[in-house]
Every structure is written in C-alpha cells, then in structure tokens.
Simulated scan of single mutants.
Amino acid sequence: MEIRSVVSRYYELANAGDWDAWTDLFAPDQVMDEQLAGHVEGREKLREMMRGFPGMYAAFQNSPKTVVVEGDEAAVISHISAETVKGVPIEADVVNYFRVVDGEIVYMANYHDTVPFAPLAAS
C-alpha cells in the first residue's frame, strides 16, 4: 500500500472507531511520539493503549484538511472534533507526521494544543 493510501486509511479507521484495524496499519516495531500518551514503542503496546480509547470518548472525528507526501514521509494538518464520555466537547487542530516503509507506519508523531484535552485528565 502506498503512503497516501496508508495515511488515508489511518483517518478512515480512526473515524470509524476501528482501533484494532487502525493498529494493524503500524509496523510491529513502530515508534510513536504522541503528545498526550507520550513515547510508545511496539504495535502491541499501541494496541493495548487503544483499547482504552472508547472509554475516554463518546464521539471522535479527526478530519484531514491538508496532506503533504514526499517519499516515505507524510504530514497531515487535521481537525479533531470529539466529545468525552462526560459530554465535554473537544476541538483541536493537529499536525501528524508519518514515516511509512513497506506499507506500514514505522514512525508517527502528533503535535497539537493540549489545553482542549484537559477534560480527559480530569476524568
């Protein structure tokens, strides 16, 4: 799968809440620097982390606005519209960076304002 397809599938599966298939997009030895969760190494550790995701959000949509692909790298500017399980809305602009090798995400990082996500810490 070429990089643009992998990145498109990333958002498609996230927005469908299919976290198991979403995790399968990552290489077994993937590395992620996630602004809220920190440094995550390994697909199975990521899978375990994502099992808790539905318990945090009643609704979650991450809508890509701009996608730039160069070689095996992609940068995506997107907007998250979500609602916590307690009904608190979250709106945040995000930039995700991806490195994809042989059709799998080997590295990903995200960057966003953490203030909109403060209600999750209070949960």
Rank of each mutant, 00 (worst) to 15 (best):
M1G: 12
E2G: 11
E2V: 07
I3K: 12
R4H: 06
S8Y: 13
R9Q: 09
R9V: 01
Y10L: 05
Y11E: 05
E12Q: 15
A14I: 08
N15M: 14
A16S: 12
G17C: 08
D18C: 14
D18F: 05
A21Y: 02
W22G: 04
W22I: 07
T23N: 13
D24F: 14
D24H: 10
F26D: 04
F26V: 01
F26T: 07
F26L: 08
A27P: 09
P28Y: 02
P28K: 12
P28V: 08
P28W: 13
D29A: 13
D29I: 11
D29C: 03
E34G: 14
Q35E: 06
Q35F: 12
A37H: 07
G38C: 05
V40C: 11
V40G: 15
E41W: 01
E41I: 07
G42V: 08
G42D: 09
K45I: 15
L46N: 09
R47N: 02
E48H: 07
M49P: 08
M49A: 14
R51M: 12
R51K: 00
R51W: 10
P54Y: 03
G55T: 13
A59P: 12
A59D: 07
F60Y: 12
F60V: 02
F60S: 02
Q61L: 06
Q61P: 03
S63R: 15
P64C: 04
K65E: 15
V67N: 03
V68L: 00
V69F: 05
E70L: 07
D72Y: 10
E73P: 03
E73M: 08
A75V: 15
I77G: 01
S78R: 04
H79L: 04
H79K: 11
H79Q: 13
H79G: 02
I80P: 01
S81H: 09
S81K: 08
S81Y: 04
E83P: 11
K86H: 06
K86R: 14
P89Y: 01
A92S: 12
D93H: 10
V94E: 03
V95C: 14
N96E: 14
N96M: 10
Y97P: 14
Y97E: 13
F98S: 12
R99S: 00
R99E: 14
V100F: 02
V101N: 03
V101K: 04
V101F: 01
D102G: 06
D102R: 00
G103K: 07
I105A: 06
I105Y: 05
Y107F: 15
M108D: 13
N110R: 01
Y111R: 15
D113H: 02
V115G: 07
V115Y: 06
F117E: 04
F117M: 03
P119N: 01
A121Y: 10
